[in-house]
Design a protein around this nucleic acid. Structure first.
Lengths: 223, 223
DNA sequence: CCAGAATGCGAGCGACCGCTCGCGTTTGTC
DNA sequence: GACAAACGCGAGCGGTCGCTCGCATTCTGG
């Protein structure tokens, strides 16, 4: 066997094909959003895209590949949009600013791409997407850990890691609440999730950074 | 038609039948826990219980009825175990105690009955269970709202309601973290979720109740 | 003891779903 | 214009799943 074992050349595509792929992915995003991954049928995706099931399988080898391609494009767009903006956290940034900026960015992305949440948090996602989600999750946790460690050099690593996991968990729960509302209420929930995180972290780093002085935004009601 | 339109008398059962029902529900709980509701096949439940599919359908009209009966029994046990202990909240109780006790109770119940979480938070649950979940959710939210309103009589109802929803959302996310760990780590996460809630609520009610004096448990590390 | 109800079985029905296959149409290349 | 490759179709294959049906077995009341 002189050539290609396990290989599969990506097949020559015409512009029409690329358009179909984008069309199918858009339809898949819509169907995944409304029914979740497992309940979404490939025939329904094809119907939503206005093509036949056979056409769908011209471009994707199976159902999982659709979700994977969609996930990859979302991940790529996420990295492209926010780039390394979420990589290095300047330890001199006030806590409120750092938390607020990070929350705003991720919430904005999820509001723009609701399928991202559906794919990442469905309990029935295919293995490959779960891996990507775990990788993203681990990346975010270690970013938070690094930030916390720089603020609390004396804290045991186990505590830092636990705190980071709690922060991410609270953020995710808040994201769900935010996505469930719209307009002004959505903004109000966004503020609340920031408050949760800031007040949770404040006692840990409050004696190290001046986050208490007179920012005046820590309490939203009864002003 | 003098009798029974739409009615269905619950059919006379023998002791053997009641035992089979309990056996089937136990098997269903196990299967639902590991695969979720939708992915759980009735044949798998019957196999797990050591009976034939036909026997299963002797006692349950369809798959949804199994989940509903399981949900009803869990709800009943929940009310029986905690009774009205979660109904009236004495407004003079310190915030930390009230939050800590409520969190401990619900976490204990969920640790004892992991299928409860699987049934209530699966995205693919049948309509009836979703209704029960929504009812429980609404009940808990209004309990929290009542407590908050008694502490903050001047706050706008919309803010109180939002804060209650945030509390419950944070608790649920914390529950997921707690269930994902065991032993000492599980206890540590339990403390963290209490901290999240207490610190989130403290600034709102801190000037009304003395929760700040010297309980000394608000911070777990770097003592 | 016996009639009838309750219990138990498991092959299999109908529906759906992921996916294929054969064949016709469009597009790019020389 | 000719040829091959990419595109497009939709009936239908194989498989799973929820659920049924006919029949055998066990229990209960009289």
């Amino acid at each position: 066997m002189p050539e290609n074992s396990q290989q599969e050349q990506p097949r020559r595509r015409q512009a029409r094909g690329e358009r179909r792929i984008a069309q199918l992915l858009e339809a898949a995003a819509s169907v995944f959003c409304t029914t979740g991954y497992t309940a979404a049928s490939t025939n329904a995706i094809a119907r939503e895209a206005g093509v036949s099931p056979g056409t769908l399988y011209q471009f994707f080898p199976n159902k999982e590949a659709i979700a994977i391609e969609l996930g990859d494009r979302l991940m790529h767009e996420m990295r492209e949009t926010y780039g390394e903006a979420l990589a290095p956290v300047d330890p001199t940034t006030p806590l409120e600013e750092a938390v607020g900026a990070a929350v705003d960015r991720f919430i904005a992305f999820n509001c723009d791409h609701p399928v991202f949440f559906a794919l990442m948090h469905g309990p029935d996602i295919p293995g490959r997407i779960a891996e990507e989600h775990d990788a993203l999750h681990a990346t975010l946790v270690s970013r938070i850990e690094a930030l916390l460690a720089s603020l609390l050099p004396d804290a045991p690593p186990a505590d830092v890691s636990r705190t980071a996991h709690v922060c991410l968990g609270m953020y995710k729960a808040g994201l769900e609440l935010v996505l469930a509302h719209e307009g002004a209420e959505r903004d109000a929930y966004t503020r609340e999730i920031k408050n949760v995180l800031i007040r949770y972290l404040e006692p840990l780093v409050g004696d190290r950074l001046g986050t208490r002085e007179d920012t005046g935004a820590a309490t939203t009601r009864t002003p």
